[in-house]
């Protein structure tokens, strides 16, 4: 056991702050088991060293990797529900009204992790929009090359498909591939995955009609949040829609967005003339 009580408390607070998930006391072994691979990848001997390093010099990438390692298998399809259900109930009808019938819809999943978010979007649109495969392109990006590879593969374990994916959608859009489940070729064709560091100048992409930038701003300081939101806005259509994580907002960060209440969640739209 290399992790001290202080380090464990720090990890607990971090995970709770960023994910609202509570690590009970006594879960030191879990922290050890999940963080050791990260420590090794970063060239450190043990988890204690990893925690000390990140505490002294916090950086968003390492922080996010730690939180994700401790919340793995926590990634749900339809995470938080409303940002996805409102896509087809509100956002899509609005876009269809203002776009030509042959205009492509471009959607960006900006922190796609292992791919649940872009494929959730793809499933919803394929079910709601006739000819979606030809009309919709979903750009999925993540800072982690490993996550981008997983998204491209479109394969999910039994435990992963159990997390919030409605059974009718599982049977409609997935097939078994050995002990895993594979998303249909039609959905995979809608999704293009690549690496992207949100905190650096962004590649030429878009312009996007809808952006999902969820549970990633929380890892950055205020000036970086502001520059990310500014760069994202530059890649969006003027009447586009931005979805943030449940604990995130543009309010008090960047005043060039208009907040629109949708169900129990909110979307943000670029303010005209901002």
């Amino acid at each position: 056991m290399t992790i001290t009580a202080t380090s464990f408390d720090w990890v607990r607070e971090l995970v709770h702050r960023e994910s609202a998930i509570v690590l009970q006391p006594g879960k030191e072994y879990l922290v050890e088991a999940r963080l050791l691979p990260i420590a090794r990848q970063m060239g450190m001997a043990d988890v204690g060293k990893l925690v000390d390093t990140v505490r002294q010099r916090p950086d968003p990438d390492s922080t996010r990797r730690i939180v994700e390692a401790l919340t793995t298998n926590e990634t749900s399809w339809f995470r938080d529900g409303d940002p996805f259900t409102t896509l087809t109930s509100t956002v899509l009808p609005a876009l269809q009204a203002s776009r030509g019938p042959h205009e492509r819809l471009q959607i960006w999943s900006a922190a796609c992790s292992s791919g649940q978010e872009p494929y959730t979007i793809a499933m919803l649109l394929e079910d709601a929009l006739p000819g979606a495969a030809a009309r919709v392109s979903i750009t999925a990006t993540d800072i982690s090359r490993e996550m981008v590879q997983r998204t491209k593969a479109g394969r999910f374990s039994q435990l992963e498909v159990n997390r919030g994916l409605p059974a009718p959608m599982l049977v409609r859009h997935f097939t078994r591939a050995g002990s895993e489940w594979e998303v249909s070729p039609a959905l995979r064709r809608m999704v293009t995955a690549s690496t992207c560091n949100l905190a650096a100048p962004l590649p030429r992409m878009g312009p996007f009609d809808v952006v999902y930038l969820r549970n990633v701003l929380i890892y950055f300081d205020l000036p970086t949040k502001q520059s990310i939101l500014r760069r994202v806005r530059e890649l969006m259509r003027p009447d586009g829609w931005l979805f943030l994580g449940a604990a995130e907002t543009t309010l008090g960060v960047d005043d060039s967005w208009e907040r629109v209440v949708l169900g129990r969640s909110s979307a943000y739209r670029p303010l005209k003339g901002a």
């Binding site: 039994q158 435990l159 159990n162 009718p168």
Partner: peptide, 27 residues
Amino acid sequence: HTQIVRALAAGAHEYVIKPFTADAIRD
């Protein structure tokens, strides 16, 4: 896949595959 289809066709609304976590039931 075929078993899940059979269960839904028979009138089940949802399907959780064992093994599952408590979070899967909650979702």
